[in-house]
Design a protein around this nucleic acid. Sequence first.
DNA 1: ATGAAAGCGCTAACAA
DNA 2: TTGTTAGCGCTTTCAT
Lengths: 343, 343
Amino acid sequence: MADIARRPEHRYGNRPTMKDVAARAGVGLKTVSRVVNGEPGVTPDTERRVQEAIESLGFRRNDSARVLRKGRTASVGLVLEDLADPFYGPLSRAVEEVARAHGALLINGSSAEDPEREQELALALCARRVDGLIVIPAGGDHRYLEPEMRAGVATVFVDRPAGRIEADTVLSDSFGGARAGVAHLIAHGHRRIGFIGDSPRIHTATERLRGYRAAMEDAGLDVAEGWVSLGPTDPERVAAAVEAMLSGPEPVTALFAGNNRVTVTAVRVLAGRERPVALVGFDDIELADLLGITVIAQDAAALGRTAAQRLFRRLDGVAGAPETTVLATRLIARGSGEIAPPA
Amino acid sequence: MADIARRPEHRYGNRPTMKDVAARAGVGLKTVSRVVNGEPGVTPDTERRVQEAIESLGFRRNDSARVLRKGRTASVGLVLEDLADPFYGPLSRAVEEVARAHGALLINGSSAEDPEREQELALALCARRVDGLIVIPAGGDHRYLEPEMRAGVATVFVDRPAGRIEADTVLSDSFGGARAGVAHLIAHGHRRIGFIGDSPRIHTATERLRGYRAAMEDAGLDVAEGWVSLGPTDPERVAAAVEAMLSGPEPVTALFAGNNRVTVTAVRVLAGRERPVALVGFDDIELADLLGITVIAQDAAALGRTAAQRLFRRLDGVAGAPETTVLATRLIARGSGEIAPPA
DNA sequence: ATGAAAGCGCTAACAA
DNA sequence: TTGTTAGCGCTTTCAT
């Protein structure tokens, strides 16, 4: 049986095809196709024979071939930063639900905040001919997607705007949210307020910083050197930044945390101090209510849902210039943001 | 130009194919294929001409067609319960990382704890000829996957075992973890301990209940009626269950929470009470350290990583009987589990 | 080094 | 009602 050993790798584990089913049922290929796809024009008797052949052979239609022929994959791609981040889980789930309502599957990938990996992922998804692409940008230049978009890949950017390219976009109001959060601290009597945010490469980080500065300026307050710290959001860096702002001759009496990771670390550091420090964080966190953390909440699911709806509207043929939607944020006062400065 | 209007829907937005590139570059189709795939046997000059044609046309290889021909999709499917659940985010991310290391993309779908939806999703993924499938079971009968597995779809079950079918499986030690958690409460003096868990349809829920009963029995303690409550984990149901166990003539002095959602609700309810009640929860939660919640932690990422590694080992041709791996859990004492019962 | 032809498994278009 | 033919865009095989 030498030929068995020499047989080429069984494709798909050597699964039966419509041709096999047709042979087994003693009908034509197209008849099988009709039965499999529930198309009319098959007598009940023929249909039964085909069904039997399908079951005895364990046939399942190969959607790869179908896709090739039909030209639509019924799948959309989502490139996000990190699926393990509690902010992106609900976002992804919301996209999935909309996709499902449109009969599409979701393929997602994490860029790990690496622009090259973002590009690699997005292009791999395009090569698989996803019908549409939702991208949470890691990089600042998305011209690499221009040929794809021109070729008909519907694309929507979420959470952060696209770089150097015009495209549909859905954002949260980072500027307005941060401004409101800082104004809230000011309203509670604070004058020396620190801002700790993500790397300035990230659009939301700079927008939130802009909101902070606007609120300070609105109140006629100066921002001293050392009150602003942007950078990676690993616990070590953030903890050091918090400590620095709380030490020295003119320590801040309140902190604005630029995102969920920063907030968590800030809460941990502040928990170990005797003198209370006010805190408002961007993004809501699980159990924040129990810890009394005041936050600027954005609705991750709404972000995903809105983006996916925009995507499918485009796929349904709605043309027109790219649109940007900005979703409002919401201040939730829970205690930490209402602590008064020391007298 | 009537024919333009009558042209069929442009496939893939009418993208250029290798044939187009070949015509443009004045070479044969196969030469383009060689350049695109970096195969040898092309002179630098020819290669340059092909590259130019590729760029000017905005060509990108259609992986759908490639897949059809090659028989491998370089993608794996993951069917989980809900991507928005903080437990599954890290699990999914871990699977993705392993897949990426093997050059594969991850397609994931949420079953929403609905067995029919699980099946629908899993079979849709099979129809797309994913190379492998990782399933977190929602249903209790996976015989529907038998033909697929026989046909060569590598399949691994995670977090909960497969129903009525033999398959590779990766689990956390729910029984042992719960037993250790309840023993911990007993060691701190509790005799009346309540258990609130997920629906008995879910394997981990019954396993954890079994662990609870074992620990009680080990200590020679009876389990009174009303101390055990299994069911949906929505906040209303859980809150009612907690209240019920804390009222009446013989209220429990400690609670074991069967999963992260139950723990969160339990903490909220207990926070509103004056008399302290001890609590140990299954699954770690963000900020649990700050709230002093004692938990039995399982490593979601390790679960995903282990399952994915098993999957790719199978895809690499490692045969053999299905194996079940059980990962250990870890008790993290933070205070809530060390509260003594009222004297 | 290069290309022509066959075919992956399916659907669209058109017979019969 | 049913079947036949011709591709979808690519890779494989085998010539040249």
